[in-house]
Nucleic acid binder design. Structure first.
Length: 300
DNA sequence: GCCCAGGTGAAGC
DNA sequence: GCTTCACATGGG
């Protein structure tokens, strides 16, 4: 590995993956992951310690990497290329709202991200616009991440900083990355994770509620951020993050002109959206944010 | 200037 | 239990 990393400056290697019904733009731009940059029909980003460039093609995704990987599981797992979207969409409730969301966003996928990066990213997400979350994380990676190998002609880029690294950054230095009041939360949680309390890998094998409780015990992590990590990093489909957009979606689409508490919305979501509720949530989120921005402004 | 952004935690009833 | 508020920062 070290030998490969040191052998910088080679041309990118390309491989095409079959991917039917995969909307790369919607997926990489739907507020799940924050490290992708779009330029001339191409997405550039970092997955773990791998630089990657993704380009949509008919029923496929063309992937460029900086060095030959031993295997491609880090990529196929991240993009969830083995998921049959039809099977997922078929489990959605057959109501007008979900039909509209699917019609508008078909091809939107859930990624499967590395837990620490996902957790830290969403700690930084609170009351921030997606554009600003990207900027904070870019700054954090540039300051405290390890450089990854890139091909000739590509600007240097870093991986996401480890919990151990961020645990040793003082709060004022974190604030220099423009994360504001989130800095002490990120630092305190980084220290907990670096100490293995909890061990993020072991959460994979926990029941949903136990994993959620372990995450919510961390500083700066409440129900919403915990659910984002449960869904985007571990794939728990019972996790249904309710942020301001999803709250508007649920209230307007399912409970118009009624007062309904967040608790009731969670109870509704847990029974109404079926075995792939997490997927349904992402469709509602993206639908509201991208397709119905004018409606989203009405009656919060 | 104003309001809002993929919220959380603490303090008040 | 529920409601209100402070918390940084930047975009529209």
């Amino acid at each position: 590995m070290t030998a490969e990393i040191s052998a910088a400056g080679e041309p990118a290697l390309s491989r095409t993956f079959s991917a039917r019904d995969y909307d790369l733009a919607a997926t990489l731009n739907s507020g799940q992951a924050f490290r992708w940059r779009y330029d001339h029909d191409v997405w550039e980003g970092v997955i773990g310690c791998h630089w990657a460039r993704l380009r949509p093609a008919p029923s496929a995704i063309v992937v460029e990497v900086a060095h030959p990987p031993g295997d491609w599981r880090w990529l196929t797992e991240y993009l969830q290329l083995d998921v049959d979207l039809d099977l997922v969409l078929r489990t959605f409730p057959d109501d007008l709202s979900m039909r509209a969301a699917v019609a508008a966003c078909r091809g939107l996928r859930l990624l499967r991200q590395e837990p620490w990066e996902c957790l830290a990213s969403f700690i930084l997400s609170s009351t921030k616009q997606i554009l600003q979350i990207r900027q904070i994380i870019a700054s954090l990676c540039e300051c405290y991440g390890e450089p990854v190998l890139v091909p000739i002609g590509v600007a240097p880029v870093c991986g996401f900083p480890t919990a151990a690294r961020l645990a040793n950054v003082i709060e004022s230095d974190l604030r220099a990355c423009k994360m504001g009041f989130r800095a002490p939360y990120l630092r305190a949680t980084a220290r907990r994770i670096a100490a293995g309390e909890p061990d993020l890998e072991s959460l994979r094998h926990f029941p949903l509620e136990a994993a959620r409780a372990a995450l919510m015990d961390l500083p700066g992590v409440g129900r919403k951020i915990a659910d984002c990590v449960l869904l985007f990093a571990y794939g728990f489909q019972g996790a249904f993050p309710v942020d301001v957009w999803v709250m508007k979606a649920l209230r307007q689409l399912y409970f118009p002109r009624r007062r309904i508490s967040l608790k009731r919305l969670h109870e509704f979501a847990a029974t109404h959206f079926g075995p792939n509720a997490g997927y349904a949530q992402q469709y509602l989120f993206h639908y509201m944010r991208v397709q119905r921005p004018s409606l989203a402004k009405l009656q919060p």
